[in-house]
């Protein structure tokens, strides 16, 4: 029986977030290619609803990746992103759903190691927790 693939969605800002992923690839670092990357103009644009809907649509874990907080291309975008992620985490906890399914990360475009590290962390979470609920799972 083939192993179920973990479903991980990553909302990455098109500045340092995506650039750190590109640098990781260019420098030959490996990461689980099944991660679904959604490019957003800024993590400040990511709303709780986007994260919840990703989970609703079958993601096992979701991460948001933005610029370093003191070096955000849009100044405070990644701080906004973190606030939204925290809000979603508390909502999940309130519902009895594992809050570690959702995480916020920051990277700069020069941190080639960061993206693979994030992906592997979130893939681990997805593997460990599996799909949400009995009615959930592969879709």
């Amino acid at each position: 029986m083939s192993e179920r693939k973990p479903k991980v969605v990553g909302f990455c800002c098109e500045k340092h977030g995506i650039d750190s992923a590109i640098l990781a690839a260019r420098s030959g670092r490996q990461y689980d290619a099944s991660v679904r990357i959604i490019k957003v103009p800024c993590t400040g644009r990511v709303d709780g609803i986007h994260i919840l809907q990703a989970l609703e649509d079958g993601a096992d874990s979701v991460f948001v990746l933005g610029c370093l907080e003191k070096n955000c291309h849009y100044d405070t975008g990644s701080i906004e992103g973190r606030k939204r992620v925290e809000y979603v985490k508390s909502t999940l906890a309130d519902l009895g759903i594992e809050k570690e399914r959702v995480e916020m990360f920051n990277a700069s475009s020069t941190m080639a190691w960061k993206f693979p590290e994030i992906v592997s962390k979130m893939v681990d979470v997805a593997r460990r927790l599996g799909p949400i609920g009995k009615a959930g799972g592969d879709r």
Binding site: I49, E56, L92, L95, G96, I97, G133, K134, A135, G136
Partner: peptide, 12 residues
């Protein structure tokens, strides 16, 4: 969205 997740989690 949150309530759908909760229902899903509890298989309702």
């Amino acid at each position: 969205s949150a309530l759908r997740l909760k229902a899903k989690k509890e298989g309702r």
